[in-house]
Computed example of a mutant assay.
Amino acid sequence: MERESSDEVIVVGGGIAGLTTAVVLAESGRRVRVWTREPAERTTSAVAGGLWWPYRIEPEPLVGAWALESLVVYEELADRPEETGVRLVEGVHEGTRLDGLGDWAGRVPGLRTVADGLAARVPVIDMPVHLAWLRERFAKAGGTVEVREVTDLAAVPARAVVNCTGLGARALVPDPGVRPVRGQLVVVENPGITTWYTSVAHSSDTSTYFIPQPDGLLLGGTAEEDAWSLEPDPAIAAGIVARCAAVRPEIAGARVLAHRVGLRPARHAVRLERQALPGGRTLVHNYGHGGAGITVAWGCAREAAGLAGV
């Protein structure tokens, strides 16, 4: 067992929630280490579509505040897209109505009603670039990332531990309320599409969306509850391409570059709270972000840092 450090925080989990929380803690002056079971590029965050928008995450009043706080940060980061991976991109949420959203929506700059839904210019995040940038920013603040598995949160040798393990929290906490919502994507050579598009029925296990990224056009998607398979399903992939091509016919002939699958860490509500550990130590939980870990990352990270004593 390592010796406990009185001023150190250990963040468990190296995806978007863990790295963002670690950055906030380290830049506040704390000594911070990230312990992660796998490198950031192998986490669910790395295969996310990267569009800023609350999706499959509760409770909405809190989510709205976290999302807006994160939006401000991403808007600033969009000034340096090659470095941060963040760009501001126009697009349309077809079938979405302003009166069907919470108060937060009225505070999204430029969000407006159009004939077929809502249009906005919001952050689109190239996740591999952004995760690498976060890791570098964390290192510059004095933090370190270690690939190591945690089997007991209470045994982590730090005065403050922050649990950002996403779906891993199901077994680690344990919290059976954390469940996978499987998302499958197809990446195609972009035929010249510069705007994003979504058409999502929250009660359905399929949706239609495309998001332009530097490495291709991301097509989606699925939201299969309690599905654990990380293997791309060819039939599902064909359906995704067909649905997207029905909106933009030029997608039909686009060359397929890759197939991706990620498991969103869904929960009835985000768990962001402090728990006492023996010996006066603190455990902070920051998980259960569903399909919106990117969208709420900075708002949740700052609240988690506050709970950890910053």
Rank of each mutant, 00 (worst) to 15 (best):
E136V: 09
R42T: 05
T222I: 10
V114E: 10
H130E: 02
R135T: 06
D175L: 13
P214H: 06
V86K: 06
W52V: 00
G309I: 01
L71T: 00
A155R: 10
G280K: 04
R302K: 14
A304L: 10
P232L: 11
T198P: 10
D99T: 03
A266C: 10
G85D: 01
G253N: 03
E250T: 07
V34K: 01
L257V: 02
E303S: 05
G29T: 00
E231D: 12
W66D: 02
W133N: 01
Q213R: 15
G15Y: 05
G85W: 05
G50S: 07
C164I: 01
L111G: 08
G49L: 10
P180E: 04
G166I: 02
G216Q: 04
L77Q: 07
V256I: 14
G290N: 03
D126M: 11
A65K: 14
I211L: 15
R148W: 11
V129T: 14
A158M: 06
T144E: 15
A132R: 13
R3L: 13
E60C: 12
A308V: 00
D126Q: 13
A119P: 00
Y74I: 01
R281T: 01
T96F: 15
T113F: 14
V200P: 05
V124H: 07
Y287C: 05
T194I: 13
E149I: 06
A65H: 13
Q275N: 14
W104V: 01
G102D: 03
A169S: 13
A120S: 06
E2G: 09
G117Y: 09
R121W: 05
C244N: 02
G279P: 01
V72W: 11
V86D: 02
A301P: 03
D226L: 15
G166L: 07
R248I: 08
R255Y: 11
H130C: 08
D103N: 14
W104Y: 12
L217V: 00
E189M: 12
W52D: 00
Y197Q: 02
R37C: 14
V173T: 09
W53V: 01
E94H: 15
A276R: 12
G102F: 12
A242T: 01
R56F: 15
R274E: 05
V34C: 04
E58R: 13
V92D: 02
E69F: 09
T222Q: 10
A155H: 06
L25V: 00
R302I: 03
E189N: 06
T44R: 08
D233M: 14
R281K: 06
L19C: 03
A238P: 08
G117F: 09
W196P: 02
G239M: 10
S5R: 15
A252E: 12
A308M: 03
W52F: 08
L307G: 00
A48H: 01
A304Q: 04
S207L: 15
L257E: 02
A26V: 00
D79M: 14
G143Q: 04
C164L: 07
R248P: 09
T151H: 15
A258M: 04
G95H: 05
H93I: 07
R42C: 10
T43M: 09
A26S: 04
D175H: 06
V296A: 09
P61W: 08
D79V: 14
